[in-house]
Design a binder for these strands. Structure first.
Lengths: 132, 132
DNA sequence: TAACGTTTGTTATAATATAACATTTTGAAG
DNA sequence: CTTCAAAATGTTATATTATAACAAACGTTA
């Protein structure tokens, strides 16, 4: 809550739109939505997005080039994200599974590489689309 | 081996370049590389890439918009991919870890969604960059 | 050969993202 | 309160990534 105060004008406007959407938004669709509020250029949107990602307020769904609000207070500043994506209805949901995140946080391979961050995207059929 | 025979001319050319590269290649850098071989348009490259992905010969590294040859005979036709990405030197390696892939293949969340596919990207520091 | 799916070739354009530069706002330190 | 630096803004231009739409050729296999 205190942190929201530190957001700038553009950042607030754009976070607000992303939070109110019930689906990931594309940068240019955000741009279209905020033009009435005086944000005219792509770069203004991309800059706000970049900052919001750094703050962990939003995530980028990489395989969709879309941006979604973080529903998980435990994302640890955008370091660890997992999504489920329905290939039929395109619905994207942030997965919040303690076991999964613990498993991945502790994962290390043979090479000895240090992992600071990950992004996981599952694709499949959601329960609604499964039925039909 | 038998399968490689069924690849078309463009598909072979493009797979060959991706396999010989020791890093993920961007579509337009592939395009640049094959122009001497008569492939002139982006669409020719993208079409071949799409097919090669379907066949599991290559993968797309989503967060990089780049394409890399599959080093894993057990990717099951591109259904399950995991990469490690060094944020310093940008090196991308396909992770081949039985336990990890088994864990993710069997993962299911509360929603009951069926997962047919996933893509996981770890970001961090590789051993070489760690030292310096 | 006829019919079909796949691949190719081509032009044009859509969609996504960043470079470069000038200016303004903000917040903390003196 | 002023000054300074960091952050944010505004703007134009351009780079990068990807697909639409259409016509033609190829390769099976009936």
């Amino acid at each position: 809550m205190a942190q929201i105060q530190t957001l700038s004008k553009n950042q607030k406007i754009i976070l607000d739109i992303i939070e109110k959407a019930n689906e990931p938004l594309k940068a240019y669709s955000i741009l279209f939505n905020v033009q009435k509020k005086g944000i005219k250029a792509p770069l203004q949107v991309y800059r706000a997005l970049e900052k919001l990602i750094k703050l962990g307020k939003i995530h980028k769904v990489e395989s969709r080039n879309a941006f979604v609000a973080c529903k998980n207070s435990n994302c640890e500043i955008s370091k660890a994200t997992a999504f489920s994506i329905c290939e039929t209805c395109k619905k994207v949901t942030e997965i919040s599974d303690q076991k999964l995140s613990k498993y991945l946080k502790n994962f290390h391979d043979k090479t000895g590489m240090i992992y600071k961050k990950y992004n996981l995207e599952f694709y499949g059929l959601c329960t609604t689309c499964k039925r039909s």
